[in-house]
């Protein structure tokens, strides 16, 4: 129970990585609130708070901050997990795509940090979900890749400007088995073969799970990580430690 007495807000906790983080932080003793754009998921444990919120909308995030203040008084942990992915090259991307993707992945992180930092007490921890795609490009995910690079840059700025009161780090997942990963594999001419190829490129011999990411989030959230700030930690089963050119796979 490393997070007993702490309070946490996790954006985008309906499913996938966000849900795994919500449940893990609660298991560690934190009081947890999460949010999404629609109704409360029926399978969300009852002790977890749910708010309908759109992180890309300033008024909605201000309202969310009010609910955090009313429920918890202050905030110890903020996990910016809410994100969307659009499977397009830059040339295919419309203005509306830009607004939707950058609105959630970039502006959403900015708004949540700006509105929640005043609620965070000394010793607070912000954890942003970046991506290995923010460092090296996944094909056909132009704006998504760029939005994650924004998250990495903002992570460093928050750590530098708001330390020592607040620590801020990013977790960069590789391929985590979620609906988002399936959507990316669906772009391949042969999704099953693409998946087998991707798997063989992981030294860990498997894709990641939400619980893998949640395990690192829990560590970064707790006082054990008191000297960790301003970093972008990759958690990808070894994928990006190896060159993409692997003669054994030809």
């Amino acid at each position: 129970m490393r997070l007993k007495g702490k309070t946490a807000l996790v954006t985008g906790g309906r499913q996938g990585i966000g849900r795994a983080i919500v449940e893990r932080l609660a298991d560690e003793g934190a009081r947890v609130m999460t949010c999404g754009r629609a109704y409360r998921p029926s399978d969300l444990p009852k002790e977890i708070g749910w708010q309908v919120a759109d992180v890309s909308d300033g008024a909605s995030v201000r309202k969310l901050a009010g609910q955090v203040r009313a429920t918890f008084g202050g905030l110890s942990i903020l996990v910016n997990n809410a994100g969307v992915q659009i499977e397009k090259t830059l040339a295919e991307t419309t203005d509306a795509d830009w607004d939707r993707l950058m609105g959630t992945n970039a502006k959403g992180v900015f708004l949540c940090c700006r509105e929640m930092i005043p609620l965070m007490e000394r010793g607070g921890s912000i954890i942003n979900i970046g991506s290995v795609s923010g460092n090296t490009a996944d094909p056909g995910l132009a704006l998504y890749n760029a939005s994650k690079a924004f998250v990495h840059g903002l992570t460093r700025s928050i750590a530098v400007d708001h330390g020592p009161a607040i620590r801020c780090n990013a977790i960069l997942p590789g391929w985590i088995m979620t609906g988002m990963a399936d959507a990316a594999f669906a772009l391949a001419s042969d999704p099953d073969r693409a998946k087998a190829d991707a798997l063989s490129r992981h030294p860990a011999g498997r894709f990641g799970q939400g619980s893998d990411i949640a395990a690192l989030a829990a560590w970064l959230a707790c006082d054990e990580a008191g000297f960790a700030t301003g970093q972008c930690y990759t958690l990808d089963g070894g994928l990006t430690a190896a060159s993409p050119l692997n003669p054994g796979l030809f």
Partner: peptide, 29 residues
């Protein structure tokens, strides 16, 4: 030791091939 302990255990079962900088934010600037 806190970080080494995390990397040593099962919690870090998906962590491999990485260089974990732990510097109090020094090199973020």
């Amino acid at each position: 030791a806190n970080l080494v302990n995390w990397l040593a255990g099962d919690e870090a079962r998906y962590a491999s091939g990485q260089l974990w900088v732990l510097d109090g934010g020094l090199t973020a600037q």
